[in-house]
Simulated assay, not measured.
Amino acid sequence: QATWRELGHALLFAVLLWPVDALAVTVALLCPLSLVATPLLLATVGDGRETKVLKAWPVDTWPAALGIAALGLALLAVGAYVLGVAAGARAELTRLLIAPRGGELDARVVELTRSRVRLVDAFEAERRRIERDLHDGAQQRLVALTMNLGLARLDAPPGPLADRLAQAHGEAGRALAELRELIHGIHPKVLADYGLEAAVADAADRSPVPVDLDLQLPRRFPESVEAAAYFVVREALANVARHSGASRARVSGGHRDGRLVLRVGDDGRGGADVSAGTGLTGLADRVSVLDGRLSLSSPPGGPTLLTVEFPCEPCEPSEPREPTGRCA
C-alpha cells in the first residue's frame, strides 16, 4: 500500500506538481526581481532613456523606475510569503501521500516491542537449554572422569604413574570447578529451582565483599524478569568487588504497587558510570526491553546506589510459568 502511494506521488509530481512549482517561483520570485531591477536596466540597457518592464511596459523616467522598484520590493515580500505557504502545502501533500498512517505507526511500535520481548524470551530459553546440556552432559562426564582418576590413583603403586594420575586427577577437578562456575554464570540452577531471592542470596555468598541482604520476595516472578534482575544484581556486586573499594555492600528490595524493585548499594569511593564499560550497559538494555528502569547514583566519594525496577506481578504458587517468561 505504501509503495502504491509513493508511485502515485511520483506520477503526480511528474505530470502536475512541477509545472505548478515552476509557475509559483516565476510569479512570486522572478517577476518581483525584474521590477526591482528596473532602475539598473534603465541605467545600463536603456542608456538612461528608456527600458521595458517585463518586456511589456516602457519606462523612460527615473521617478517611474524607482517607483516600480519599490513596488517590486513589496511584491517580493508578498511572493516570499506565498512561496512559504506553497512549500507548506506541498509538504502536507507529500506527508499525506507518503508518510505512514498513524495506525500503521502504532502497529509497528507494538510489533517492535513484542519482537524485542520475544528475542529476550528466546535468549533466556537458549541460556537455560545450554545450562541443562552442560549440566547433564559435559559436567556428568567430567564427574565420572574425576572419580575414575581418583580410583586409579588409589590403585596405582607409588612412582611416576601415580604422580601422573594425581596430576590428571587435580586437572580434572579444576576443570570440573571451572565448568560449574561457567554453568552458574550462564543460568544458575538455584534461580530456576528456588527463585530470585535464593539466587541473590547465593550471589551474595559468592561475593568477596560482605553483603547484607534485606529482600522481601515471598513469591516467584516471570522468568525473564527474574533472570534480568538476578544478572543486574550479580554484575553490580562484581563491580563493587572490582572497582568500588567498598568494605561492605547491601542488597534490598521487594514488590510493591505492581513493581519489583531491587537496590544494590556500597560504601565505596563512588564515581561509577553506567556508560563507562562496567558491564551494566547491556543489562540496562535488557531491563528496558521488559519496560523496566535502571538508575545509578554514585557521587565522587560515595556511596553508590544502583536501583532496578520492573513492572510485573508475582505468579501464584499454583500458577505455572510459561517458558516465555510469563505467568500462565
Rank of each mutant, 00 (worst) to 15 (best):
residue 145 L to G: 03
residue 124 E to G: 08
residue 118 R to Y: 02
residue 156 A to L: 07
residue 123 F to D: 01
residue 235 E to I: 02
residue 186 I to D: 05
residue 216 Q to M: 08
residue 219 R to S: 12
residue 187 H to C: 06
residue 190 V to L: 11
residue 193 D to S: 14
residue 206 R to N: 04
residue 117 V to E: 14
residue 116 R to H: 14
residue 195 G to M: 02
residue 200 V to L: 11
residue 223 E to T: 11
residue 190 V to R: 14
residue 243 H to S: 13
residue 155 D to H: 10
residue 128 R to Q: 12
residue 169 H to R: 07
residue 220 R to N: 10
residue 135 H to I: 06
residue 217 L to V: 09
residue 231 F to T: 14
residue 175 A to V: 09
residue 183 I to Y: 01
residue 138 A to Y: 03
residue 234 R to A: 15
residue 237 L to A: 03
residue 146 T to L: 07
residue 200 V to E: 14
residue 175 A to W: 09
residue 122 A to I: 05
residue 135 H to R: 13
residue 196 L to H: 11
residue 197 E to P: 13
residue 235 E to R: 03
residue 156 A to T: 09
residue 185 G to A: 14
residue 117 V to H: 12
residue 187 H to V: 04
residue 131 E to Q: 11
residue 173 G to E: 12
residue 188 P to W: 01
residue 167 Q to T: 11
residue 186 I to H: 05
residue 120 V to F: 02
residue 232 V to F: 00
residue 178 E to D: 15
residue 133 D to M: 04
residue 205 D to M: 07
residue 239 N to Y: 06
residue 149 L to N: 05
residue 225 V to F: 08
residue 150 G to E: 13
residue 241 A to R: 05
residue 234 R to F: 10
residue 199 A to I: 10
residue 160 P to Y: 00
residue 204 A to K: 06
residue 125 A to S: 12
residue 126 E to T: 12
residue 218 P to T: 03
residue 159 G to R: 04
residue 132 R to F: 01
residue 163 D to H: 01
residue 199 A to S: 15
residue 223 E to N: 07
residue 173 G to W: 11
residue 211 V to S: 10
residue 167 Q to Y: 06
residue 190 V to S: 15
residue 241 A to M: 07
residue 141 R to V: 12
residue 137 G to C: 04
residue 131 E to G: 09
residue 145 L to I: 03
residue 204 A to M: 09
residue 128 R to A: 11
residue 152 A to Y: 04
residue 140 Q to K: 15
residue 187 H to D: 12
residue 159 G to C: 05
residue 226 E to R: 08
residue 157 P to Y: 02
residue 215 L to A: 08
residue 181 E to H: 13
residue 205 D to F: 04
residue 171 E to F: 02
residue 164 R to F: 01
residue 204 A to R: 10
residue 208 P to M: 05
residue 163 D to I: 01
